[in-house]
Lab assay of single mutants.
Amino acid sequence: GATAVSEWTERKTADGKTYYYNNRTLESTWEKPQELK
């Protein structure tokens, strides 16, 4: 079946920190989402 992984995108802030952005829920998080573990 379909997985939720594609909803999350790994992004970088202007100062180079990595965060994760969810295209479906429009939420962002510093922690790696469960779906990516």
Rank of each mutant, 00 (worst) to 15 (best):
1 G>W: 11
1 G>M: 14
1 G>A: 14
1 G>E: 12
1 G>L: 14
1 G>S: 14
2 A>K: 09
2 A>H: 13
2 A>P: 14
2 A>C: 15
2 A>F: 12
2 A>W: 10
2 A>L: 14
2 A>T: 13
3 T>D: 12
3 T>G: 13
3 T>A: 14
3 T>P: 12
3 T>I: 13
3 T>Y: 06
3 T>Q: 13
3 T>M: 12
3 T>L: 12
3 T>R: 07
4 A>N: 13
4 A>D: 13
4 A>V: 15
4 A>K: 08
4 A>I: 14
4 A>M: 12
4 A>T: 14
4 A>E: 12
4 A>Y: 06
5 V>H: 13
5 V>K: 09
5 V>E: 13
5 V>C: 09
5 V>T: 13
5 V>G: 12
5 V>Y: 11
5 V>F: 12
5 V>R: 07
5 V>S: 13
5 V>Q: 14
5 V>I: 13
6 S>F: 09
6 S>D: 10
6 S>M: 11
6 S>T: 10
6 S>L: 10
6 S>W: 09
6 S>P: 11
6 S>N: 13
6 S>V: 09
7 E>G: 08
7 E>A: 06
7 E>L: 04
7 E>N: 07
7 E>T: 04
7 E>D: 15
7 E>R: 03
7 E>Y: 08
7 E>H: 08
7 E>C: 13
7 E>S: 06
7 E>P: 06
7 E>F: 08
7 E>I: 05
8 W>P: 00
8 W>S: 00
8 W>V: 01
8 W>N: 00
8 W>F: 02
8 W>L: 01
8 W>Q: 00
8 W>M: 01
8 W>D: 00
8 W>R: 00
8 W>K: 00
9 T>I: 14
9 T>P: 00
9 T>E: 15
9 T>V: 15
9 T>L: 09
9 T>W: 06
9 T>H: 09
9 T>N: 06
9 T>R: 08
9 T>K: 05
9 T>D: 09
10 E>R: 04
10 E>S: 04
10 E>I: 10
10 E>D: 03
10 E>A: 07
10 E>G: 01
10 E>H: 03
10 E>K: 05
10 E>L: 05
10 E>V: 10
11 R>N: 04
11 R>D: 02
11 R>L: 14
11 R>W: 07
11 R>V: 11
12 K>G: 03
12 K>E: 07
12 K>V: 13
12 K>N: 05
12 K>L: 11
12 K>S: 08
12 K>D: 03
12 K>P: 02
12 K>F: 10
13 T>A: 07
13 T>H: 03
13 T>P: 00
13 T>M: 05
13 T>E: 03
13 T>F: 03
13 T>D: 12
13 T>K: 03
13 T>Q: 04
13 T>V: 02
13 T>Y: 04
13 T>I: 02
14 A>V: 10
14 A>G: 07
14 A>I: 11
14 A>F: 09
14 A>N: 08
14 A>L: 10
14 A>S: 11
14 A>E: 11
14 A>H: 10
14 A>P: 14
15 D>V: 03
15 D>Q: 08
15 D>G: 08
15 D>F: 06
15 D>S: 10
15 D>H: 05
15 D>I: 03
15 D>C: 12
15 D>M: 05
15 D>N: 09
16 G>N: 04
16 G>M: 03
16 G>F: 03
16 G>A: 03
16 G>Y: 02
16 G>T: 00
16 G>K: 02
17 K>S: 07
17 K>I: 10
17 K>D: 06
17 K>L: 10
17 K>Y: 09
17 K>T: 09
17 K>F: 08
18 T>Q: 04
18 T>E: 03
18 T>D: 02
18 T>N: 04
18 T>H: 04
18 T>I: 14
18 T>F: 05
18 T>W: 04
18 T>A: 05
18 T>G: 02
18 T>R: 06
19 Y>V: 04
19 Y>N: 01
19 Y>K: 02
19 Y>A: 01
19 Y>Q: 03
19 Y>E: 04
19 Y>M: 04
20 Y>V: 00
20 Y>Q: 01
20 Y>H: 01
20 Y>N: 00
20 Y>D: 00
20 Y>K: 01
20 Y>R: 00
21 Y>V: 08
21 Y>I: 07
21 Y>K: 03
21 Y>Q: 04
21 Y>F: 15
21 Y>H: 06
21 Y>D: 01
21 Y>N: 01
21 Y>C: 05
22 N>R: 01
22 N>L: 01
22 N>I: 01
22 N>T: 00
22 N>W: 01
23 N>L: 15
23 N>A: 10
23 N>E: 14
23 N>G: 07
23 N>H: 12
23 N>M: 14
24 R>S: 07
24 R>H: 08
24 R>D: 04
24 R>L: 11
24 R>K: 10
24 R>F: 10
24 R>P: 00
25 T>D: 01
25 T>R: 02
25 T>S: 04
25 T>K: 02
25 T>G: 01
25 T>M: 01
25 T>Y: 01
25 T>V: 01
25 T>N: 03
25 T>H: 01
26 L>P: 00
26 L>G: 15
26 L>K: 15
26 L>Q: 15
26 L>H: 15
26 L>D: 10
26 L>F: 15
27 E>Y: 04
27 E>P: 00
27 E>D: 05
27 E>I: 08
27 E>A: 06
27 E>R: 06
27 E>V: 09
27 E>M: 09
27 E>H: 04
27 E>K: 08
27 E>F: 04
27 E>S: 05
28 S>L: 14
28 S>I: 15
28 S>D: 03
28 S>P: 03
28 S>N: 05
28 S>K: 11
29 T>E: 03
29 T>W: 05
29 T>R: 13
29 T>F: 06
29 T>H: 05
29 T>G: 02
29 T>P: 01
29 T>D: 03
29 T>V: 14
29 T>S: 11
30 W>L: 07
30 W>S: 06
30 W>H: 05
30 W>F: 15
30 W>M: 07
30 W>G: 04
30 W>D: 06
30 W>I: 05
30 W>V: 05
30 W>R: 04
30 W>P: 04
31 E>D: 11
31 E>Y: 09
31 E>V: 12
31 E>W: 07
31 E>H: 10
31 E>L: 10
31 E>K: 07
31 E>N: 09
32 K>G: 03
32 K>E: 08
32 K>F: 05
32 K>W: 05
32 K>A: 07
32 K>Y: 07
32 K>N: 05
32 K>L: 10
32 K>M: 12
33 P>T: 02
33 P>Y: 01
33 P>E: 02
33 P>I: 02
33 P>A: 02
33 P>V: 03
33 P>W: 02
33 P>Q: 02
33 P>M: 02
33 P>D: 02
33 P>L: 02
33 P>H: 02
34 Q>G: 11
34 Q>R: 09
34 Q>D: 15
34 Q>E: 15
34 Q>I: 13
34 Q>Y: 10
34 Q>S: 12
34 Q>P: 15
34 Q>H: 11
34 Q>L: 13
34 Q>V: 12
35 E>R: 04
35 E>A: 10
35 E>K: 05
35 E>W: 05
35 E>Y: 06
35 E>P: 06
35 E>D: 11
35 E>G: 09
35 E>F: 06
35 E>V: 08
36 L>T: 06
36 L>W: 09
36 L>F: 12
36 L>D: 07
36 L>M: 10
36 L>Y: 11
36 L>I: 09
36 L>G: 07
36 L>E: 07
36 L>Q: 06
37 K>R: 12
37 K>A: 15
37 K>E: 14
37 K>L: 15
37 K>Q: 15
37 K>I: 15
37 K>Y: 14
37 K>H: 11
37 K>S: 13
37 K>N: 14
